[in-house]
Simulated assay, not measured.
Amino acid sequence: MLKTTVFEQLKKAMREKDTLSKGVLTLLKSALDLAEKEKGAALSTEEETAIVNREIKQTNQALEGAQKAQRDDLIKQEEAKLVLLKSFLPKQLSEDEIIALLTEAGVTKGMNMGEAMKIAKPLLAGKTDGGTMSKVVKSLI
């Protein structure tokens, strides 16, 4: 379960006085706890992965803002956060692997984007980010 892994790493970061990791892990643990409380039951692996992906997306947005402002200190901090958050995701598929999976699942040329994404989303949930998924689907249809 992801929540216990996050909690163990949080304790380790606190012992080592690693403030960056402690902050990221605290946010992630809070998001997981809140989602679990709202659901009223333990989260599935897909739901946990979705929460990690949401945190990664927010960190990417913060990174873009730091890059536009040319703040090197913030850029390094956000990149370190991304590395830590991505360590909680399952192995991400390459574009070639995604193409092979989607072709096998029946995504073909001439299909509309909505139909193709209905096939792709459940198939690739947690295995790739939405931007890559969308780009590969567009290239196939």
Rank of each mutant, 00 (worst) to 15 (best):
Gln58Leu: 15
Leu124Gln: 06
Arg54Tyr: 06
Ala62Trp: 06
Gln67Thr: 13
Asn53Cys: 10
Thr132Ser: 04
Lys138Phe: 08
Leu63His: 03
Glu95Asn: 11
Gly106Asp: 10
Leu63Asp: 07
Asn53Ala: 07
Gly110Ala: 12
Leu85Asp: 04
Lys109Pro: 01
Ile141Trp: 05
Asp129Gly: 07
Lys91Met: 07
Gly65Gln: 14
Ser87Ala: 14
Gln92Arg: 11
Met113Ala: 08
Leu102Arg: 03
Leu84Met: 07
Ser87Pro: 00
Glu95Phe: 01
Met113Pro: 01
Leu89Tyr: 05
Arg71Leu: 13
Ser134Gln: 10
Leu101Gly: 00
Met133His: 01
Leu89Ala: 07
Gly126Asp: 08
Glu104Ser: 14
Lys81Glu: 07
Lys135Ile: 11
Thr128Pro: 04
Met111Phe: 02
Val83Phe: 03
Asp96Cys: 00
Leu89Cys: 06
Ile98Met: 06
Arg54Ser: 15
Ile75His: 01
Ala125Pro: 00
Asp72Phe: 09
Gln77Pro: 04
Gly130Thr: 09
Ser94Gln: 11
Asn60Met: 13
Leu123Glu: 02
Lys86Thr: 07
Gly126Asn: 06
Gly131Arg: 03
Gln77Asp: 12
Pro122Val: 10
Val83Leu: 13
Ala125Cys: 04
Ala80His: 05
Glu104Cys: 05
Asp96Asn: 09
Met111Glu: 11
Gln67His: 00
Pro90His: 09
Gln61Ile: 11
Asp96Pro: 00
Glu115Gln: 15
Leu84Pro: 05
Lys127Pro: 08
Val136Glu: 01
Glu115Lys: 10
Gly106Asn: 11
Gln61Glu: 15
Leu74Ala: 08
Gln61Cys: 06
Leu101Gln: 15
Met113Lys: 13
Ile98Thr: 07
Val136Trp: 03
Thr128Arg: 01
Thr103Asp: 14
Leu101Cys: 04
Lys57Thr: 14
Asn112Thr: 08
Glu97Gln: 15
Lys127Gln: 15
Leu93Ile: 09
Ile75Asp: 02
Ala105Thr: 08
Lys86Tyr: 07
Lys135Ser: 10
Glu78Asp: 07
Leu93Trp: 02
Leu63Glu: 03
Ile98Glu: 01
Lys76Val: 10
Val107Gly: 01
Glu95Lys: 11
Leu93Gly: 02
Ile119Val: 15
